[in-house]
Design a protein around this nucleic acid. Structure first.
Lengths: 223, 223
DNA sequence: TTGCGTTTAAAACAAATGTTTTATACAGAC
DNA sequence: GTCTGTATAAAACATTTGTTTTAAACGCAA
């Protein structure tokens, strides 16, 4: 009744190659022929297994993107827990987020890049997958951070201001992935592991203290 | 030898509609027929006036995007000068940038949105126009800010760190345009003038002091 | 008026692209 | 062995899309 190996493998190969290509060039920029050739599958197999190109795109998000989003979420939790302080302070939460999203963790560098490329595309030009991205990944992350930040009593900030702060941190994180061509061109530096590590510590520092907040030679908040 | 009105107007109409559509859907997402119909021009007119669709795209950047980029640059200068302090401090520079880029200025809300949409697309997926965007708009802005920041002696930061700071500010600014669907959906707020004004003051505040830096009840840097 | 250069209009083309159809191969059930 | 459902392969189809071609309209100078 069911053929075990070859069929499933073809589906998987298609999903894998489709995600790579969709991330690189967006839905419209990718042809079905491109996908099937990359997956060493027949042209008709996309419609055979997924019904349509549009549905293949959605399936990439459901089968590939979502699980990774959950991994990132777990990594975030683990980073927060691993920071030691309970309840965690703002610095711990921000660093946990930046490291979960930017640093080498459960997934490879390439995988992480693709993950954020796909997300960025949906944020800029929402399609079928937008609701899924918001509901399953972004909103949970935002709510979690809001809880942490609320507990830590962020000055006199209102909930509304806290939301803007969270967007700002996420914005920087996404931007350092999103605008790689720009950053590489302008700085002349390759986007390697070392650079990424510096970016992480920069984002944490900038998010916490901004341009002026911390004076290393004259600390203010800590006694 | 030259027909004055109708021809030029057709070219202009095509450029206008092409920019709107390219900003909305990207180069690949727009068809020549769409552009010419929106511009009330004949299908062949794009190739007649611009040679090809690709060249029309480039021409949109040269004829429309670049002049606006220069306007933004001038608005930035004017904002810095108008801040009063000479040499300007970091807060003045950051606010001047945020206001030039985000607030109602020389161009309309829609125009500004399109401008950043086009730029974001080039940053994420560089094409012919990428070099032009970098050379004529982004790099000058970055160099200008580097000079300002250098003069103001930003703590003990190296040039490299200053570059990351500038990218962070630009990242937030771009992100608050780029991810409008997300932000509107999550906050439930419309993207109107009032919201924009709050975003500007948030970005300035966040860029300067981050999440923890400034304690309003116990100012640190100012005596 | 006649001729010329420019612009617009309409049709035609060739290539690309998502989808469907048809045929073949194969594995397991009866 | 035969039949049946599934997977692959190849061809065909109907649109879409960038570009080119051809024809007509218009303004203007000689």
């Amino acid at each position: 009744m069911e053929n075990l190996h070859p069929a499933d493998e073809t589906q998987e190969r298609i999903l894998t190659e489709a995600e790579i290509l969709f991330a690189q060039k967006g839905f419209r920029g990718v042809t079905v022929r491109e996908v099937t050739e990359a997956a060493h599958a027949n042209l008709a197999s996309v419609n055979y297994y997924f019904g349509s190109k549009q549905n293949l795109y959605l399936e990439v998000f459901k089968k590939r993107w979502l699980p990774r989003a959950r991994q990132l979420n777990q990594a975030f939790d683990k980073n927060v827990a691993g920071a030691g302080s309970d309840p965690p302070g703002i610095p711990e939460v921000v660093e946990a987020l930046a490291r979960a999203v930017l640093e080498e963790g459960v997934m490879s560098e390439d995988e992480r890049f693709r993950h954020h490329q796909l997300m960025s595309r949906e944020l800029a030009e929402p399609s079928d997958a937008f609701d899924l991205v918001i509901k399953e990944a972004i909103r949970p992350m935002i709510e979690k951070m809001t809880r942490y930040f609320g507990r830590a009593s962020l000055g006199r900030r209102t909930d509304r201001e806290i939301a803007l702060c969270i967007f700002s941190v996420m914005g920087m994180v996404l931007y350092f992935n999103f605008a790689r061509p720009l950053i590489s061109t302008v700085t002349g530096e390759p986007y390697d592991k070392g650079f990424m590590a510096r970016v992480v510590s920069h984002i944490v520092d900038f998010s916490l203290y901004g341009l002026l907040g911390r004076k290393e030679d004259a600390p203010c908040s800590a006694p």
